[in-house]
Amino acid sequence: MQHTDKNYENQINLINENLVKMGSILEQQFSDALKVVASRDQNLANKVIEKDDLINQLNHDISDLVFQIIAMRQPMADDLRFLFCSIKIIRDLERIGDHLTTVAKKGYRVSTNIPDQLIEKLEVLGGKASVMTHDALNCLFERKLAQADQIAERDDIIDTLHGNFIKDVLSYMKENDDFIPDSLALIQISKGIERIGDYVTNIMEEVHFLIEGKYNNS
């Protein structure tokens, strides 16, 4: 049901639209950043880095809109939960953007002499984090918890994969001391993706609150 006051309805819709925009840009960023890791494409990396400004801008725009609505409209119930959720997750989304920038920045400089198996492991890790991000955003936009299943477990898997990857890179480093800077870049990329998993887990908690009115563990 729509709000009787059309202006209010439009304000709430505008926040939702901006969130959708932020989410879709991030998903594109994710896919591009992973492509950069695989292809070392510098142009694509620059594109990812430049687009981060857009995400920062949306973060501020949404924050302003929420701030205004709270001041002017005294929102209640599902509106209040939506605004509260929005204000919390835009920070997480913005951080995810930062980490994707790191992935792109480090990604295109990694030497092509690095063994493919290592790069492929990063792609697997990144793929999982990317799907997880997509699922969490879907839950938000559809107001359904269906795809929220096992988000925490999926984050655990990402942590494990990240841990294993670090071990792999360390042993590679020991044998190949010419590639220590590249190996460090790989570790930073993996760490960035692992952090994204944490942020998505936070987002999912907020979406749970939005839908159920309480946190998952309470």
Partner: peptide, 21 residues
């Protein structure tokens, strides 16, 4: 606190959020 943050009934939600009344 419950009624104004997470009412059980959709009608309650719609009324207190200004969707009718």
């Amino acid at each position: 606190t419950k009624i104004f943050t997470k009412p059980d009934n959709q009608k309650t939600n719609d009324y207190i959020t200004g969707r009718f009344g």
